[in-house]
Structures are given as structure tokens and as C-alpha cells.
Amino acid sequence: MNILLVEDDLDTAEFISKGLQQHGEIVQHCDNAEQAMLLASSSEFDVIIFDRLLPNMDGLDAVRILRASKVTIPIIMLTALSDTSDRVAGLDAGADDYLVKPFAFSELYARVKALARRQPLKESSLEICIGELKLERTTRQVFRAGKEIELMPKEYQILEFMMQNPEQLITKTMLLEQVWGFSFDPKTSLVQTHVSRLRNKIDKPFVFDMIKTVRGCGYLLSRQQDAE
């Protein structure tokens, strides 16, 4: 992936760049909004990581200007302001996702990948198939290997989100935001409990587990059995 990182704090920038490069991504870094807008409109990027607080210009305004000039590259905003209204403002300005500092690198990477691979068509399609799993949106039915599985509403929402982002790390925070609409962390095992119930229905009666735990980070929906 070709990623543009707009971040004025050099330590943070290095932390993100290094992490992305270790995963084989190409990172271009710049530390101000003017240069970022120039780069964004002249080069091809898969994702832009945009810091909210930049010298001279609010990141929000920069995103707004980019969107106004028909730049459609997915943007994820980084901010130290951990409030819902700021989050809403960020999304309103045209950002696709919003992440509060300090964050775990795995969280950022999971979101970057989810954004880069987002395929608008897929979201609106009536049926999603991932390996043995099939999800029908009109009837809200789920099948694995042709066998229907009954899910509770939250379990269905979790699975739907995972199936939209297969083979990608999905963090607890992403699930809280997408499924429950929480901008705060309720701390207990709310997500774990629901994922574990989902697993009991999706994985337990079958040969291999499709939902995998990435330790300390989140979950991943995989098409195939692990090589181990």
C-alpha cells in the first residue's frame, strides 16, 4: 500500500512509519497541511493518515478542502481530543475514520487496512460469501457450509462487519464503534462475550475455526484453516 502520513510530531511519525514499513507498506511523510494537500492531489495514495492538530491549519479544514477538490482517497484522522462531538466533526468533514491518541499500532494498522480494502459495492451487495460462510442481508440469514445458523442481532452485526473485512485484524474498539456505536470503552468483556457466543455457533460445530483471536489486539475472520 502507498500511504501518506501527515503528522507534525516527529516521534509519532517515526513510530507510525516504522510500523507500516515493517508490514511492507510504502510511507510518505510530510509535516504540514499545505504540503499534504499538494501531495494528495498530485500522487496516488491508498490511504492518508491525517493528524488533526497541525501547525498553521486545523486538520479538519484540510480534509474538508481535499474532499471539496474531489480527492476520494480514504482518510483516517488522528487526534488527542477524545470526544464524541470532535469525532462527529471529523467524520462530517469527510474523514472515513477517526482514531484517538494514544493508540496501539495494531489498532491503527487494522483500520488503515480496513479503509484501503473497502469496496463500496460489497457493502451494499445483498449477499456476502467468505469461504464457507454466506450471509444474506435481505433475510438476515447466515449459513456455514450450507447449514443455517441462527444468530442474535448483535452477533449478526459482528459477523457482518467481519465479513466485510475478511482476513483483516478487527479490534475490540472497532467492534464497539461499528456494532454498538460507543465512542467510549466499557472495559469489560462485552465484546469478548458476544464474539465467543458467535464462535460457538459459527465455529464449534465445524471442522476448523474461521474467527481467530489475534492476541492482545482483536479478531480476524479467515477463509481457510491455519497451516499449523
Binding site: 464524541t84 454498538w180 456505536g181 460507543f182 465512542s183 467510549f184 466499557p186 469489560t188 462485552l190
Partner: peptide, 17 residues
């Protein structure tokens, strides 16, 4: 809505704890 959600969660978490 978000604040009321948090209120409910925090009280339920408190009971869990």
C-alpha cells in the same frame, strides 16, 4: 444518546464488578 449509553454501561459494569 451516547452519554446515556455510557451511564447504562457504567452501572451494569459496576454490578458485574
Amino acid at each position: 444518546r451516547d452519554l446515556i449509553s455510557q451511564l447504562l454501561c457504567n452501572l451494569l459494569e459496576n454490578a458485574l464488578e
